[in-house]
Structures are given as structure tokens and as C-alpha cells.
Design a protein around this nucleic acid. Sequence first.
DNA 1: CAAAATACGTCAGTGATGTTGACATATATG
DNA 2: CATATATGTCAACATCACTGACGTATTTTG
Lengths: 172, 172
Amino acid sequence: MPELRTGLHHLYLRDEDLRLGIELLFYAYRDFTAEPDRMLDEIGLGRAHHRAIYFVGRYPGINVGELLAILRITKQSLSRVLGELVRKGYISQRPGNVDRRQRRLELTEMGAALERKLSENQRRRIAAAYRAAGPNAVEGFRRVMLGLIDERDRGKVAGEPVRPMPATAARR
Amino acid sequence: MPELRTGLHHLYLRDEDLRLGIELLFYAYRDFTAEPDRMLDEIGLGRAHHRAIYFVGRYPGINVGELLAILRITKQSLSRVLGELVRKGYISQRPGNVDRRQRRLELTEMGAALERKLSENQRRRIAAAYRAAGPNAVEGFRRVMLGLIDERDRGKVAGEPVRPMPATAARR
DNA sequence: CAAAATACGTCAGTGATGTTGACATATATG
DNA sequence: CATATATGTCAACATCACTGACGTATTTTG
């Protein structure tokens, strides 16, 4: 269906084109995470903490279940990470208004500062790549990346926040 | 300099544009690795093994130092992974002709079969994303991804293999 | 040719991140 | 009230990474 719009069903993909795609993902991700990892290491945190901090910053008030759905790790893993972040004062929590079983998570001032510091690095890298590649390339980048993501999560990344929604939301 | 060519120095990047980029990378990488990870798990291997197998398949005859430069892990980590792969019969090794200190690595039949199986999955995902996005988007994707990679490795991914080169090559 | 550098390996210890499984508690819902 | 949900905890374990120290074979160099 989308193929018809643009006539792309004829796109000829050589093995090498696909290999290049695989490698681009490997190298880009490797370099994209390297510097934040180093910074985190200095304060005794790791990439898992970064991810939690990032998404709590992105969706203030997010609860544990929603975060689990994004990160796709076990609650035990997340619990450890989240516990450390709360203990160290990067994340605050309080029960939900409508569903008091939930822990609604937010960044503290300190957490927000760390989040900015970490993602500033990544933003800079992305901004440089975007600028060097140009607006058309950026649009193409987005289309392809979105296509790489599992269909059910494309909406999530495209903008609509994982809003808690009056109780019992995350039950997809 | 590249900005002048295309006049992109005016590209206006909102905070949200950059956030989207960060998230695209997170989600795409998460989903890109999920299925191979599951397959590997069944045969008692992990993502680290996949990476080694992939790059040995990509550069037959690659030596340990070159592989280390690509993966950016310690030799102790790589040694473990490589040792397992050799013991289990996925990778064969023999000393280099010109420098006999080197271990030149190659996939066995079995290793090549596993490599195909694993990356077939990733190829399919990439091919689908490419086809849905169209050739222009693919070109843009490549430009941006390349820009995200550390400059010194852009050549590597763009095609030129990490060829051993008559002795003393990898000393960048 | 002897000394130094290189390619690679190993042993030992540690830490971060993930997993499974079992069980507990508070709250919500039908 | 019975059941489902949101979350947590304890325990054990695997994978993948790291640091540091040291060893051997081979190549390069003064």
C-alpha cells in the first residue's frame, strides 16, 4: 500500500546495501553511547540508568509499568536501577492520584541536570550529523529508522507520550 | 565547509527534533537486536558472539587486533568470546603468513551458516524499512548515520575493509 | 645480533546488566 | 468478596564488560 504511493516496490536491494545498513547501526550506536557511558561511569552509574533517566525526563509522571514497556527489561532489573536512582536523589516518586498503587516517577533537579548533561552530548552529535546531511536526509533518516522499529511502538516514538491515561492504561 | 555546499548551516533544530533522533536510535537498536538475541540464546550464545561472527564473516582473515579496533572492547573480553566460538566450531584460525604472531580468523561452514541465519533476520528488517521509505530516504538515512559515527571509522563502514595490509597495519 | 616493541594469550578479581522463579502487599474492579 | 493489577522483594545465576598483572612468540630496530 505505501509502496503504491511511491512505486518503491521495485527498489533493488543488494546484499551489500543491507550489510551496510547493519554496520551503520552497529557503529552509530556504539559511538552514540560511548561518551555518555564514560560520564556515567564517573558517578558510578551505567547506561541502564541513563535510559531510565532519559525516559522519566521525557515522560514526567510515568509509572513503572509504562517504563518497563519502553525498556523491555524485567521489573527486577528496572527495580534495581530505579531504586539506585531514587536513593541517590536523581528521581522522585509518589503514588498516582487516580491509581494509588502506581509509582509516578519524576526527575529531581539533580536528575534533570544529569539528564541534560548526558543528552546534551548526544544532541550535539545528532545536530552535527543532521546539519552535515541536510534536511532531506534527515527526513529520510526518520522514515527509515521508524521502519526499523516494531510497528506497535512507532506511535510512541513519533510523539504521543505514553500518557498514564485515567487508570489501567498500559494494558496493550 | 560541507555546510557551504548545501547551505545547511541554517538548518533549524528544535530540541524536540533532537530528542526524536535520540529515541529513534534507542528504539531501532532495541528492536534490531531483539530477534537475533533470542536465536542466539537458544544455542547458548549472546550478542557479543554475534558481533564477532558478523565481522569475521565480513572480513575473512581479520586478525584479533583489527577486530578489537572495531568492537572497542578489551582483549580479555574478546578473547573469551572468540575462544568459545573456536571451541564450538564456528570460527577457525591460523597464523598469518607474513606476520606469524597474528591469528587470522575465518568462519567455518557452521559459522557461516549461523551468520546467515542471524543476519537474514536483520537484513529482512532493513529491507522492509528501506522499501517502505524509498530510495531517497535510504540515501538520507545513510548520510545521517554516517555522520553519527566517529570520523575515523567512517571509511571503515563505507566499504574499505580493515585489510591486514603487509604487516604493521592497524597502527593508526 | 641484542634490545625493544608488538600480537596475542592467560589468570584473577570485579561490576553492571540482564534473566528466571517464587512470593508478598496494596489497591482496584467486577 | 473474589480476583486481577501494579509493584516490590529475595535469591540465584549468566553474560559481558572492565582492570591489572604477567607470559610467550615473533618482529622490528638501533
